[in-house]
Design a binder for these strands. Sequence first.
DNA 1: GCATAAACGAGACGGTACGTCAGGTCTTGAA
DNA 2: TTCAAGACCTGACGTACCGTCTCGTTTATGC
Lengths: 208, 208, 208, 208
Amino acid sequence: MQSRSSAPRTGRPRSVEADEAILAATRAALVDLGWSGLTLGDVATRAGVAKTTLYRRWAGKNELVVDAVAALFDELELPDRGTLAADIEGVVLQFAAILARPEARSGLLAVLAESTRDDALRERIRTSVVDRQKRLVLEGRARAQARGELPPESDPSTADRTVNLIFDMVAGAVVHRTLVSAEPVDEPWARSFTRVLLLGLPAAASHP
Amino acid sequence: MQSRSSAPRTGRPRSVEADEAILAATRAALVDLGWSGLTLGDVATRAGVAKTTLYRRWAGKNELVVDAVAALFDELELPDRGTLAADIEGVVLQFAAILARPEARSGLLAVLAESTRDDALRERIRTSVVDRQKRLVLEGRARAQARGELPPESDPSTADRTVNLIFDMVAGAVVHRTLVSAEPVDEPWARSFTRVLLLGLPAAASHP
Amino acid sequence: MQSRSSAPRTGRPRSVEADEAILAATRAALVDLGWSGLTLGDVATRAGVAKTTLYRRWAGKNELVVDAVAALFDELELPDRGTLAADIEGVVLQFAAILARPEARSGLLAVLAESTRDDALRERIRTSVVDRQKRLVLEGRARAQARGELPPESDPSTADRTVNLIFDMVAGAVVHRTLVSAEPVDEPWARSFTRVLLLGLPAAASHP
Amino acid sequence: MQSRSSAPRTGRPRSVEADEAILAATRAALVDLGWSGLTLGDVATRAGVAKTTLYRRWAGKNELVVDAVAALFDELELPDRGTLAADIEGVVLQFAAILARPEARSGLLAVLAESTRDDALRERIRTSVVDRQKRLVLEGRARAQARGELPPESDPSTADRTVNLIFDMVAGAVVHRTLVSAEPVDEPWARSFTRVLLLGLPAAASHP
DNA sequence: GCATAAACGAGACGGTACGTCAGGTCTTGAA
DNA sequence: TTCAAGACCTGACGTACCGTCTCGTTTATGC
């Protein structure tokens, strides 16, 4: 959002309710209208706020939606389910549940589309959304290593690359299944996916 | 696009050059301006065509861009490289090369974003883009089975689900790496990805 | 309309029904839609004719409407009612009856408006509509002179100017009353008008 | 124009310069392009104003042109020239001078043409243009009665009808001469017209 | 009687203007 | 200084007509 540690200590202070009202209104508008139908004027009206107030805080539609959507992903957690496979299945289902919500579906992809031409926006997304979820992979790996399901990493840079790879594989598969193939990510799918991820394609294919 | 099997054989026929000129102009505009900067008026001007001609053929920006982008993916092939691993690496790199082109990057995601609220558009994407590439998975599997790298499928419905799963995993990982993580899909990455996909995460992690 | 004295003696001859069908359709469209709502495409459809056929005969909306409206005024006559006053009243009422028809109202004024910037159109209107009605003034004067109600003209050029003046006064007053003031031209008004025209304002005002 | 007695006292007030700039631009565009060539987009550009600003104030071309043209007629006056005949001649020439201006010519007729199908527009014209000039007839009559050139009116309703009649006769004749016959209203014509109006047709014809 | 040539219907074409809408900025007066 | 309100400029939207241009078809004449 906006950091202003350097205090503007004079004049009327900014309304603190306004910020959350705007984000909530943005999410509501995303549900009702989708990304392309979302209007900053409409968001302002829903939030009971003037357009000026909105622009004083965010630079435009993209930035606003990133912030509105980012919060959704913060609820992801990795409860210890005892095995690596169960942990993966759990986080896959959690992630899919978030992507099933209409405010996330179109908002996320649209903002990603914009980010392909706007480096600042990409950075914002990376910080606000993507990188914050990599903790799940790290945590899962550490837990699996403690359980002996995975070997301790030898080379730190290799280990880092592997984290990114796994993150892309898990997140990518869930996003693709949900938003591109438009099929539900249910328990059977999560189980099959985990099986392939852990055992490899030939082993997973040999016995269902 | 538009099926015209039922022939309106009267009146001046539609210009056949116009269709391709418009699609080419669309791709060019995507490169120059990206999705959000793309204007149908501008596309028409670039194509040397009136805006009405464009609207006579496509309902709007989304439909036009789907058609313009879909053609890009038709060049994907699966040359026989001798092993399943090599085949996968090859197609991953091809796919990534297409996604690296600017006319594909923002266009594809944006259209996917819209499709989350527009069933007709989703269906159009599925037929024009997604389903047409599943052939690669089918072909690769058949070849691997012939080589003995994969067992023959037992149950056809299970086999079908597996095709979809693998497709989501491969395409999803590449898309996520390229467009979300915004990192290059190069040969090392392709090799690592294939290794995990074929051997499973623990085996792949144990020895680099 | 269009002169075809120079004969194109070969090829398919122009449909004679088309001409009248188009003019009739134009008048019908004027009634339904008024000048500004009238489209040549609609006229063509109403006439059961292709747009090309229409443009082969008329250069545009203005020319077409002039021809369509001009015919309406040809039905004006000057039956001998015995006195100059009665003759004037009669023609005033006839003229007003024509102007009361919706196909004449907006069509005539609109075409006149265009004619203020288009000399060819003005000439066409003058020939097709205006000058053809001056005969009424000439006929009425001749009849009144025969009856001894008006003196024989002394100077031909003065006489000519007077014809134009009277024409402007009669036509102008009726048009203004009908289309600008938007009040009906009924018998009492025609009587009052004729009284002022023949006796002069003071005499007409003194005794009703 | 638009009544704003009911005050929206909040928000940014409407620019007062814009109103007059738009009307002036409209008159200029009428001179350059005529009614049919006049574009609201062009008017906006000339006025240095956005199209939306224009549409916020006027519903369309017709309403705008009525307002732009109406002001032209407000400069009509009736200076006392000593006799009724001289007064009439004076006002006839003034009126003709206005109608000779290109911004009045096509604009006025075109708007009248539209008014034949649009009651609201007709009412607007009546109040903005027509009725405001009837004062000249009333004033002229009062002055002539004071001079003894006209008898005092006996019946008020008859007198009222006569005012309307004379107004239609004077305005109609000048409009018809100027815009339909497309001949100049010069002093000789004004003199002849006044002669017929005051003495009646036979008397005026007998001696030039 | 059969070729020629123009007219015909249909409808696509390049244009231009329309009137609306959203984005983002600016100007009020009140808090 | 912020706020709500709303006017402002900009520029794209999708539609409607314009007048022109192919098409394939029809219809009188003239060789």
